[in-house]
Design a protein around this nucleic acid. Structure first.
Lengths: 158, 158
DNA sequence: TCTGAAAATGGACCTTT
DNA sequence: AAAGGTCCATTTTCAGA
């Protein structure tokens, strides 16, 4: 599952999570490696699945998705097939940015990106009210996205 | 704030959020545009801030960050400077992947990525117990990351 | 690590609406 | 003017020695 990474790999991961467009020679200069070495290492990181993919991060506001909402959901029954169906329905919905199946007071946590409240209301109907395995849900409306990212911490020991 | 996008832009955004490494000529083939036009449009999208950045998505498991945790926090006082200090402390922490300041039963929602429970315990001490503006917090441990991403929905009208 | 070929990016310039 | 297309120079990637 885990992969062994040395400090060069870790430094590269830090850089590349931050900005994937830095050319390999520049990366090399930063971590003290030749362009070719950087190239090989990045390829290996992708091949081994450490780097899952490269993605453009788009600004929700700029495309009119002004509202971020966090919703917690409690289910009626934890029967596997019912849970799977719910997971699928959440995962499929393009407005669901993230979905975690959790242990604790709630069963699911969803992060949603929508254009406005009306759209959220409509979504709750679709995702929650029309699903009779949803016992209750609670809505938290984001007033500020303090930190947003998928960055994974990689510690570098000097 | 919002930017006017035509269908070409939207199609490009869909592709590029999914995979930022598709070469521009291939993108052109997919959306029916020349390489140069794709190049110009992508540049414009970056300049206008629609595309905030390009990032490598790394697998938390592969780098040993096996645990995803969602934490809700309620504050004692909503005094601006206290809130700002909290926001800063959350944003700074490399294990805080996301942080939203929300309205509702809670004040903050955090998504954390940690190596193990011990580390989380240590983090709660650092982030919550040692901050006397934290009234209470609730921990939800993720058992499965059903959907994870920063993808923003862009609808294409044919 | 170095060198060089192949690929991708991005600008110049002309054409269309 | 605004945006597309073709062509060409520059930059970047990536494999072999």
């Amino acid at each position: 599952m885990t992969v062994s990474l040395d400090n060069f790999d870790r430094k590269l991961l830090v850089e590349v999570q931050q900005d994937a467009q830095i050319p390999q020679n520049e990366l090399g200069a930063r971590v003290n490696l030749s362009t070719a070495a950087v190239n090989r290492r990045l390829r290996r990181l992708v091949d081994e699945g450490v780097i899952e993919r490269y993605a453009a991060v788009v600004s929700p506001e700029k495309v009119g998705c002004a509202l971020t909402i966090v919703t917690m959901v409690e289910v009626e029954s934890e029967q596997i097939d019912l849970l799977d169906a719910m997971k699928r329905s959440f995962a499929q919905c393009p407005f669901v940015q993230q979905c975690y199946y959790v242990a604790g007071e709630w069963d699911f946590v969803l992060v949603l990106t929508v254009h406005n409240m009306d759209q959220y209301t409509e979504l709750t109907r679709q995702l929650f009210f029309s699903n009779n395995n949803v016992k209750r849900f609670k809505t938290l409306v984001s007033m500020s996205r303090v930190k947003v990212g998928l960055g994974v911490p990689v510690s570098i020991d000097e």
